[in-house]
Design a binder for these strands. Structure first.
Lengths: 176, 176
DNA sequence: CTGTATCCCAGCGGATACTG
DNA sequence: CAGTATCCGCTGGGATACAG
């Protein structure tokens, strides 16, 4: 099954153990990536999350800044709340009646690396057309998505190994 | 415009300069994130890229391992090639007739951080149901998506600043 | 201002059947 | 084995109109 005619530049993941035959675990169940896409795989979902990152909270602002139709924004926001990415929170400005605002939950905020990766990948090939750029407020340098292992090493695609886990060790506690 | 009743945990991006009013640059054009979604915003596209990362190359394997219908895989692969994420390359095994295989281009390979972010976000909330896990082949530790600035600092969401750039300083693309 | 209710269209993805 | 051609249902998203 192994092919010997691959160029070095074609290297993908290291395949080890069960993974030598990827078919063996195709039946292992739902891929985590697909689970993510079920929730944030739509344009409207990511756009609303984006505006939330930018500080948008009120329905009106979110609609205008995303450019989505109100109907779409409404339905998607309801779903984002149901999925636990956002919280619909009442608040009141003195003298006005109670309103609601949409605030990212911790789960929603944990989309940050995904958002940066999307922004970066899109801008990497746009020929410098300009637009919004994300930067480190401390030093002003642009943000870049990275991949590291739990031990802190930077990991490239060719150093990545995929493996089958039957049941991951007790949920991700405060990772030490 | 500024709200003073925000909890610390609600902090999102730091807003500075032009960005104090996000509306000011809504008209600044297409968001890089949306550009990414136009290309890899579909389930089929990311699933095919995933299998390419896992080492899949032949049409038959890609179809079986993604579980996509042949028609869908066919059309999506054609588009991925057109978008420059994959390359359709002829090859031949002695004694057999020439076949084609799909190989990730550098642009396709640069989706690696995005892929890791998607995998990680999806598995972070699955209650440890098990499945595929990505790890550092060197030390065996699990992979995590990260965000850094060009100067090498780790950057959290609350240290992130968004700003408007009219035309980015000729990054890495002499084209055009 | 903050939505919801309808109607409509385009695109994704599947099923089936057919080629080289 | 590696696709293409057709048909078709589902849903994402927009337009319009209306409500609290």
């Amino acid at each position: 099954m192994e092919r010997a005619d691959l160029h070095d530049k074609d290297t993908v993941f290291t395949r080890t153990g069960d993974f030598a035959d990827r078919d063996a675990f195709t039946a292992a169940g739902w891929c985590a990536m697909e689970r993510s896409l079920e929730v944030v795989g739509t344009r409207s979902a990511m756009m609303l999350v984006r505006e939330a990152f930018y500080g948008g909270r009120r329905f009106d602002d979110l609609v205008r800044r995303t450019g989505l139709a109100e109907t779409v924004a409404s339905k998607r926001l309801r779903q984002l709340v149901a999925d636990g990415l956002m919280e619909r929170r009442p608040y009141r400005v003195p003298g006005a009646r109670t309103r609601h605002e949409y605030v990212l939950t911790e789960r929603g905020r944990s989309l940050f690396p995904l958002f940066v990766a999307l922004m970066n990948w899109g801008s990497a090939t746009d020929g410098g057309r300009g637009g919004v750029e994300l930067a480190h407020a401390g030093c002003g340098e642009a943000l870049l998505p990275a991949v590291r292992c739990a031990a802190g090493h930077d990991v490239g695609i060719e150093e990545t190994e995929a493996r089958l886990v039957t049941s991951r060790p007790a949920a991700d506690e405060p990772s030490r």
